[in-house]
Design a protein around this nucleic acid. Structure first.
Lengths: 166, 166, 166, 166
DNA sequence: AATGAATGAGTGTTCATTCAT
DNA sequence: GATGAATGAACACTCATTCAT
């Protein structure tokens, strides 16, 4: 909180006028960034001109990009590991559900268009895709591996795409 | 250290007889666990009866299993993970090289046997595979997601396998 | 710090609001006390009505008195004296120079007035005088010898005075 | 005690077989060094060929020299400031009495031979001499000022000598 | 006589939170 | 609304001492 107060150029006591606790402050900030993420990703889901593969591709890359710029999100993730903020789990559950729905829509679009041919149930494929996506968050943002890993995004998506095609 | 001492049923001071600092204790645990991981995985690499696909599959699953057990065993050390990233990173460099070599061997075995047909260079595929693998570590290790995610391992490997086949 | 906090009737944590560390607190106390010492001694140096002998005498006695009061006042800091010698030494360098200059002025005044006749160079006499003075500091400051030693101050100065006279 | 054990190349536990406590260990060591000091100084007192001035001079210089080499004595003084070993006071009281007696003998010798002419009582002069002597111990041995200060010993004794002469 | 291991009271320091003004 | 000051529980670490072997 000292650090936050310093950045905000306010007294530490002042922060407690606006936020009941450290957890409360983190919650408000992370909700904002999650909404931003949703907004950015919605533009991709709803773009009628993109094929399923293109959507998966852009989804993946945009997601990483947005989160890479979401400094407060990183800080919250970090703090979460130390302090086990329960609200993070709650908010993630929401976001997870939202993402899964939309990923499933993309996959179904791909099945309908003949792009994808699955040996596995759609929702399991969506889970897997999201599992990988979310797994990458932490090394990227907390270990600063974004620059190191991002060149491999295209390759990963290609393999994944081929893995669910024909 | 209080917590660790409690679990060890020793006085906090006693721990400092055996380890010069918390970081020292952490390091020794990490090294032990990494060696354990290497030993377990070596059994898979060196098994001549396994196809490349089987090796990838078993590699993936065993790796997660070992790390998950380590995580459960060393519950109290989780909080230190981020504080001590710096030297975990140092120790990782060696392990990373070791893993990449062995993954590349598996991929090459797959290419030679005709199992795999790559559009991407071998070492990039290995990097991607390891990137996904390492991404999943932290959700498992720090967020207790093993139970939630492990049912999807098979599916992920299948997709990956198909993504690099034929 | 426990003890200091107790005397200040504050929580230990509160002290760290005002001082970054124990060393910092120690430093500020020492600086204040040194400035106080300089102010007290300046009054003696600059008094035009005093002979050189009177100045030496008063200088000696006042110096010990001020340090003894400081010692009583800062009882809890005594233990830190040796741990923090390093920067006390740094601060001393300035004070030492200041004192030597002023002692030399007194001695020169004594030479000019015919009070003192030296077999030894002025600045060596000043060094010797200060050596004795500083030697007595620690028994006073750390070992509470003020009451035991102070009755001998006059005699010491007399001997010293005679030792540099005629 | 760790440090002492290390120097002695014994286990810390072993030291407690020979000494009941840290204080006990320090006591035994310092008694030895004080006896050594007494032996060295006795040679000077009892030398019939020396004048009183020569004795004072040699006494002063030998005392500093012996103590400067008494490493354990320094350590004990240091430890005393931290831990307030009461035995140090007791041992010093003995030594002080012994020293005062002998210094008084020297002064009386000087008076009888006509070397010294005192305005002050003999025992007060002895106290003053010892006060200065003891005061110098600490800067010399704990602040490593021996090399810096020792060149001034002769000058100090000269002034002192003149201060008690004719 | 010796030792490796253990102990527990103590140390300086941090930090989210509270509160009078 | 804002702030400087205060709080107390927590933390990693130290060290003289003890003890079973």
């Amino acid at each position: 909180m000292d650090e936050i107060a310093k950045i905000a150029r306010k007294a530490k006591g002042s922060i407690y006028y606006h936020f009941a606790s450290k957890e409360d402050l983190f919650r408000e900030v992370i909700i904002k960034e999650m909404n931003n993420l949703k907004n950015q990703l919605t533009k991709i889901f709803t773009n009628p001109e993109l094929s399923a593969y293109e959507k998966l591709n852009k989804y993946f890359i945009k997601r990483m990009e947005v989160l890479n710029n979401a400094a407060n999100y990183h800080e919250t993730l970090k703090a979460d590991f130390f302090e086990h903020f329960h609200f993070v789990d709650d908010l993630r559950t929401d976001l997870d559900r939202w993402e899964k729905e939309n990923i499933m829509k993309i996959i179904n679009q791909g099945i309908n268009s003949g792009e994808f041919v699955l040996d596995i149930k759609t929702d399991v494929v969506a889970d897997i895709f999201l599992m990988v996506l979310k797994g990458l968050e932490i090394p990227f943002f907390l270990q600063n591996k974004y620059e190191e890993y991002s060149p491999h995004f295209e390759g990963l998506i290609q393999i994944f795409n081929k893995g669910v095609s024909k």
